[in-house]
Design a protein around this nucleic acid. Structure first.
Lengths: 288, 288
DNA sequence: ACAATAGTGTCTCTGAGACAATATTGT
DNA sequence: ACAATATTGTCTCAGAGACACTATTGT
């Protein structure tokens, strides 16, 4: 009745019953798929799956894999899993390699957030729902029909400054399309925080792994060296994080050392206590 | 070229250039606005802002406030702030009461997640981007043109079971529309975790508050009694969490006690160390 | 006077981190 | 033989929680 607010709200609701009448918005799903691979310098480094755009806008630029949500057909999670399977060439319910299926089923996939600035795509208003994936070392992807190429890129070689002209690293010249640098930066923040309180670091590894391999995951994601002894004891002290298999590796490390015990991921979905990263500066404002 | 994947991906991209050609998807923004209010039994309890639907589907049911994203005009964050201002009657840039403006500017608003199951709205495929708001005690809202009523509801009086037939509390008969029970449950999880590591519990209070008031926020959100002495010392030990004003309350508590010191929110955006809630069961799987 | 509450002090226990030590393996 | 690494042990310190205590205020 006596509303002091403008009436267009009612018109909008009416428009919902004639879906073609209003200005359309597209919904896409983009994937930030992270994995650990051998980098050029020999170290294992964090890599992200990218596709090279074959058409404008941003033709030739690298972008996050993704695609349109199929209207009326699929859930957001389903669309994300489908896109990831298509881009990695690992079809979850397909024929052929059991290895690919088993590997894909071990991939962790979770929603990251949505991005809907009107100008983020010059063609139309596109709302993108971003997903974050933790994957074990997968084979090189094959480019789809809409991409000129698809490959794993070390995240250290990408420019994440995303408009903030401050930190422009000359050694990270690769500019991502759209606002994907921002999305990737958010994904890395989430990943770094997630492995503190969840056992998802094991999603980067195979079904069986050693404590030193798990430590390499944390070191790659956090970008810091961890104390081997303390890390080892801490991981084993968290109930349900890892479970011993009784087996060991076939041989020691490439540079010597005893064989390491092999573990599998435990049933816990939450680490108590958590594995906090060292770089959490305590005092941000020390008075002079 | 030699792609072994089906070509519909290309067709989808072509469709993007003719936006009206494909099956449309609507994008809405829904708000989970939480605040602390005096409950019926006298205790302060967590409340959520709900609107009663005036039209089908779910006519007469209570639902989260929200509305359509204005295509080509606004960002997701902007749309969320607009919806919140409309539903609470607090217009950020309007004329009149400075109090309403100042209060609304103190509201914390963050993206919660997106929900896009095709069948969640019977009219069409709707992707909803949910937002979480922490608000100080606001006046009762006024119903918009599309709602029969708008009010703050104690979350304890709502049915959050959302299909999982397990915990159906007979004293919580209010059923929310659509999948809003699920969204609210996710929002509560987020809120409970968020105040552990961020100073956002202060967003539920006015610009000046006491430590016991802050403790009441934590007790209401977590649903647990906290030790007054330990809580007090812990809050003051976190650098940048609260800052003393030198002032105290005008009088003691309603049932006696000395006057409490007043504080303002400090500059820290992250609590080091965090205020962990007590109910974190360590061993979920004790073997028999 | 009495009860309730704000704020502080003290003690204990757990866990993180620095450091050391030992055993095992590749080169 | 030597270096590198896996794993365990020891010590110290910070922080959480239980408990006790004092001071201040409303009824």
């Amino acid at each position: 009745m006596s509303g002091d607010q403008p009436p267009p709200t009612e018109a909008e609701w009416l428009a919902a019953y004639d879906p073609h009448a209003f200005t359309p918005i597209a919904v896409t799903v983009d994937i930030v798929a992270l994995t650990l691979r051998e980098s050029a310098d020999g170290d294992t480094a964090l890599h992200v799956l990218l596709v090279q755009r074959a058409e404008p806008p941003f033709q030739g630029h690298w972008a996050l894999p993704g695609g349109f949500l199929r209207a009326g057909e699929e859930d957001l999670d389903t669309a994300a899993a489908r896109e990831l399977a298509e881009e990695t060439g690992l079809h979850g319910g397909g024929t052929g390699s059991d290895t690919a299926e088993a590997t894909l089923s071990r991939v962790h996939l979770e929603q990251l957030g949505s991005y809907g600035t009107p100008a983020r795509d010059p063609r139309m208003h596109v709302v993108s729902v971003a997903y974050l994936a933790f994957a074990p070392d997968l084979p090189d992807p094959q480019a789809g029909t809409d991409a000129a190429a698809a490959a794993w890129h070390p995240v250290a070689a990408l420019d994440l400054s995303a408009g903030s002209t401050a930190t422009r690293d000359p050694h990270a010249p690769i500019q991502l399309a759209f606002d994907h640098a921002r999305i990737l930066a958010d994904a890395l923040d989430r990943a770094r925080a997630k492995i503190e309180y969840s056992p998802l670091a094991t999603a980067f590894l195979g079904p069986e792994f050693t404590v030193p391999e798990l430590r390499a995951v944390y070191e790659a994601v956090w970008g810091e060296r961890l104390h081997p002894g303390n890390f080892h004891r801490k991981v084993l002290s968290v109930p349900g994080f890892v479970e011993p298999t009784g087996r060991t590796t076939d041989r020691g490390g490439t540079r010597g050392g005893p064989r390491a015990r092999r573990y599998t991921a435990g049933p816990s979905r939450r680490l108590h206590p958590p594995l906090l990263r060292p770089s959490q500066e305590p005092g941000p404002t020390p008075e002079p």
